[in-house]
Design a protein around this nucleic acid. Structure first.
Lengths: 337, 337
DNA sequence: TGATCTTTTGACAGCGTTGTCATGATCGTG
DNA sequence: CACGATCATGACAACGCTGTCAAAAGATCA
């Protein structure tokens, strides 16, 4: 059984191949009756257009690349699925690529990827979305791209993000509301813009409630488990350790949990721990983490949607900001419980 | 700057486009001198062949689809990266797809995917690799595919796997070696062939050491965290609970850990817990899990390699079996410690 | 040296779409 | 009712490669 082509469909429907092409691409100027007839034949023959021929003739690949570097598998998979879902709806394909380089090398890695795949556009996740080199390289090629998450680089391209600052503020206020006054904070990777935002929100909440900001309660982490473990150990080794620790993401919060367990510190009775992201890990550690739910899937879906809009209309759509919410689980309680 | 085509290269090198094509595809019958000249021009012009044109003319897509259903993000990402690595080496592209259907519907989902993407072949992961419907559908289309992990379906296609049975036996013997005599076991998803293999290994070890097999110590799980939590609760609620629990994967073992924590049972002093897979979760729970290291990345790499061999030579390569090893961490100890 | 075989190279026709442009059908208007 | 404007459709040439087959260049042998 030979694979069906547009010719088979055209013949069966009694129209020219161009008309079939019009119907398939939702182009105007096709009579409803004709459109339906063609669609019926397409279905009957189980016809699927050849991606290669489409790309070759149309001079576009119908391919979008999702680039990431993020080590958190749970986050990555959520993002992948969100982007894929949107692509599938538009008959685009998603190509995922984990980057490894840095700086100039990273920029070359990404342009090389685009050269090879001929991707029509990119969805760029943090921290790649914050690399000046990457943005510049993409710009030079005038490659359409969207960024996920906020960014300090001003750029005309749209992005999809959430309000990390206010989310961190809310979480901190929640801890304060429980009665905590000495709260430790673990910063995220310094190259992630979100790290600064989250710290900012944390400080705002302290300020609002007239709690002095103590720099010795702030540790530098790298968004990975081990860094949270290390930071947790240090915070808990302080002469007067905090009664609560807010880590900038769940992986690091899990590290803090482990540090506490090592020391026989009971959670949440003796120490409250909060995370950020609400990934899978938040539910698999003990006790389950209080955290901020970040809508990774939806952010990726929205970002991909923005990119597709750009590709289809050459216009620049408005950025999208999505909501978050606190998820209160078992790792937080009033101090000295 | 217009994109370079094969014509530009041919002109610059003073040869016919067909010769350039030969060089790029490593075809024989090109003089070394000519080959090098072409290669030099390719590099100089930074020429990358158009995937679409290649596919269209050559009637193959240079695209491999990786299909999975597995909910464990950590496993999935490892597998993705392994498959990608091999693809990249061969200038193939990897397209990842998470399946959602079941039975006949699943088979239709996959064939539809192939219809749309024109993938040259598939890497099929469990439990999809064990679905008779899927295998049959793929066969009917005579689509090249490889399976990851063992399988009870006899089929001429190759696969890459590890010896789950003997790994489970080793882990059980390790627990027995620590002094455990009443060991609970949590089965994996009934549709995964590996579940049966792991149970088999467990029973073999008991038998070898003359420990009677007690069915009430075996719980049915589904390879997900929640099922491990539930099974753990049940095992620990037994009148005479086991002193060790061997869960068929890490996610379920993490669930057991949580069940124990809920009950205030100390690990490993009062209960030993072992997992299987050695995914990220094994290192983020407390205490860190003793588990079997499954080489997911390498298995995916090997499976993809097998597929590429099939695609390039139309021959059927031999299956590949990779090694595993026990990773002893903090969740296991002698009983009644 | 010429005949024959092998290696190297090239000309050209597709592959299955979309873009361009021409043509015929239909519509609205004075 | 005639006439231009708009809509619907089709013919045909790309798009950038690979496959096929023929021609040219070398190699081998009597």
């Amino acid at each position: 059984m030979q694979r069906k082509t547009i010719n088979d469909v055209a013949k069966a429907a009694g129209v020219a191949i161009k008309t079939v092409s019009r119907v398939l691409n939702n182009e105007p100027n096709v009579r409803d009756e004709t459109r339906e007839r063609v669609l019926a034949v397409v279905k009957e023959l189980n016809y699927h257009p050849s991606q290669s021929a489409r790309s070759l003739a149309g001079n576009r690949s119908y391919l979008i690349a999702l680039v990431y570097e993020n080590p958190s598998a749970n986050y990555v998979v959520d993002v992948q699925h969100g982007a894929m879902a949107r692509c599938r709806e538009q008959r685009f394909q998603l190509f995922v690529h984990q980057c490894s380089g840095r700086g100039e090398e990273l920029a070359r890695e990404i342009t090389g990827l685009v050269d090879q795949t001929r991707a029509d556009g990119l969805v760029v996740t943090p921290p790649l979305s914050e690399s000046a080199e990457v943005i510049e390289a993409l710009d030079r090629r005038s490659l359409p791209f969207v960024r996920m998450a906020p960014n300090e680089i001003r750029h005309r391209t749209p992005y999809a993000d959430m309000d990390d600052e206010s989310a961190a503020r809310e979480m901190t206020e929640y801890l304060i509301g429980l009665g905590h006054r000495s709260i430790g904070f673990i910063r995220g990777h310094p190259e992630h813009f979100a790290s600064g935002q989250r710290l900012k929100g944390f400080r705002q909440a302290l300020h609002k409630h007239h709690i002095p900001f103590d720099p010795s309660y702030v540790m530098q982490g790298l968004f990975v488990f081990e860094s949270g473990l290390e930071a947790g150990r240090q915070l808990l080794a302080l002469p007067k350790p905090p009664t609560a620790i807010f880590a900038s993401n769940d992986d690091m919060a899990a590290g803090v949990l482990m540090a506490a367990h090592e020391l026989g510190i009971e959670i949440p009775a003796q120490l409250s721990v909060a995370g950020f992201d609400d990934t899978y890990i938040a539910r698999t550690v003990w006790p389950q983490l209080t955290t901020v739910h970040q809508p990774s899937y939806d952010l990726a879906y929205a970002a991909t949607d923005l990119l597709l809009q750009m590709l289809n209309s050459r216009a620049t759509p408005k950025p999208v900001r999505l909501g978050y919410h606190l998820v209160c689980r078992a790792s937080t309680a009033a101090p000295g419980g």
